[in-house]
């Protein structure tokens, strides 16, 4: 990942999985404060693109240039069910915390305060002590967003963040992402299945078809 001009720049990204080309020459730009929605049929490569940008999948060719190591809001939350909401959020700070402090749960006070602030930001005040498996689907999604926020990255990627949510909660989550992009000047790239939501909450809509990107 190169440190460069603000925002997110992807150039000529090729990703092959199991011998099958999934992304072919994908290029895109997202500016700070902008929300870009990524649409496409199942299997079109949306998750692969986000994971490749996040550095979780190796690209065969191409460059990802971002102002910071991207934070990814995973599809299906990826929360630890036996950890509290607060500890799940603190997972986002592991890159800054030493091994023993983290292993012994001796979280730095400043990080705990920051985790509480992130929970407050996503509207989960007072739920920090609740275990992951005792949260509703919408609450889990918000904890996953708070975890990504605590990474303090200027680039936020979200993979189908509202796929399993009811319409009202889904709108709340997308409004939150848009507000964060505006307020914190974050780059937000979000994959969505619902074109109506994309039209309402995103500044731009990009469509992935057979691994190639088209402007919708």
């Amino acid at each position: 990942m190169l440190q460069a001009r603000p925002g997110l720049v992807v150039r000529g990204l090729d990703v092959t999985l199991g011998g099958r080309p999934v992304l072919r020459g994908v290029s895109l730009d997202v500016a700070p404060g902008e929300v870009v929605a990524l649409a496409g049929l199942s299997g079109s490569g949306k998750t692969t693109l986000l994971r490749a940008i996040a550095g979780l999948l190796p690209a065969e060719r191409g460059d990802v240039i971002a102002t910071a190591r991207p934070a990814l809001v995973f599809q299906q939350h990826a929360l630890a069910s036996r950890l509290t909401a607060r500890d799940n959020v603190l997972v986002g700070a592991l890159g800054r915390i030493g091994f023993w402090r983290a292993a012994l749960r001796l979280w730095p006070r400043a990080e705990v305060a920051a985790a509480e602030a992130c929970l407050e930001q996503v509207g989960l005040v007072g739920l920090g002590g609740r275990r992951g498996d005792r949260l509703s689907g919408g609450q889990r999604q918000r904890v996953a967003i708070a975890r990504a926020l605590l990474q303090r990255s200027a680039v936020l990627l979200a993979d189908e963040p509202v796929a399993s949510l009811d319409p009202e909660t889904a709108e709340g989550v997308l409004a939150l992402l848009r507000d964060l992009a505006r307020r914190e000047r974050l780059v937000v790239l979000v994959s969505l299945h619902q074109p109506d939501l994309a039209a309402r909450f995103a500044d731009r809509l990009l469509r992935l078809e057979d691994g190639c990107l088209r402007t919708a």
Binding site: R69, L72, V91, A144
Partner: peptide
């Protein structure tokens, strides 16, 4: 994977 993507090492992510 979420912990690893946040910058944790394997042993750190495993312990937490």
């Amino acid at each position: 994977e979420a912990a690893r993507s946040a910058g944790a090492g394997r042993a750190q992510a495993a312990s937490v």
